[in-house]
Amino acid sequence: MDNTIPTTEVVSRLNALRREHRDLDAEIAQRTAEIQADELTVKRLKKRKLWLKDCITRLESALIPDEPA
């Protein structure tokens, strides 16, 4: 039985993760520009952004077909 996720679902998930990654980038830029920036919140946002980048990389890797040995 094949347990792979359909390519369309992977692409859809990738697009959602990329969108969230861009949104976080904008929010981080906005918050760091504030005079009274909450450093803990910014740190958490950056951590979330890195996690999203890892997820994006894994999903992109899953889209590349395996080459036969």
Rank of each mutant, 00 (worst) to 15 (best):
C55Q: 15
I35R: 12
E34K: 02
L50N: 15
N3Y: 10
E39Q: 07
S61Q: 06
D54K: 14
E20N: 08
Q36H: 09
W51N: 14
Q30M: 13
E34I: 00
I56R: 07
I35P: 03
K53Q: 15
T32Q: 11
A16I: 04
A69L: 11
L52D: 06
K47S: 12
D38L: 03
L59M: 12
C55T: 05
R13N: 08
I35D: 12
A26T: 13
Q36F: 08
P6K: 12
R22C: 00
K53F: 15
D23F: 02
R22A: 11
A37R: 08
K49L: 07
N3L: 09
R48K: 06
P65F: 08
R48L: 03
A33W: 00
E60V: 07
A69H: 09
E60A: 07
P65A: 09
R19I: 02
W51S: 13
A16C: 01
K53L: 15
A16R: 05
A62W: 06
L59Y: 14
T7V: 13
L63G: 08
A26M: 13
E9K: 09
N3C: 01
D2I: 01
V10T: 07
Q36I: 04
E27A: 05
T4I: 04
I5A: 05
E34A: 05
L59F: 11
R19N: 08
R58D: 11
E67M: 08
E67Q: 13
L14W: 05
K43D: 13
R19P: 00
T7R: 10
L63V: 07
R19G: 05
R22S: 09
E34N: 01
A29N: 11
A69E: 14
H21Q: 12
I35S: 13
T32M: 09
T32W: 02
V10R: 08
E60Q: 12
P65S: 10
K53R: 15
E34T: 00
L40Y: 12
S12C: 00
I56C: 07
T8P: 02
K47Y: 11
L52P: 04
R22N: 08
H21I: 04
E34V: 00
L63S: 02
V10N: 00
T41Y: 11
S12F: 01
L50K: 14
T7P: 01
T4R: 04
K53W: 15
D2W: 00
Q36C: 03
K43F: 14
T8Q: 10
A33H: 07
D38A: 07
R18M: 10
R48V: 01
D23K: 10
L14Q: 02
R31G: 03
E67L: 15
R18S: 06
I35M: 12
D66Y: 04
I5K: 07
E67I: 14
I64H: 07
R13W: 03
I56N: 08
K46R: 15
N15H: 07
A16V: 03
E67T: 13
E60Y: 04
T4P: 00
N3T: 08
D54M: 10
P65Y: 04
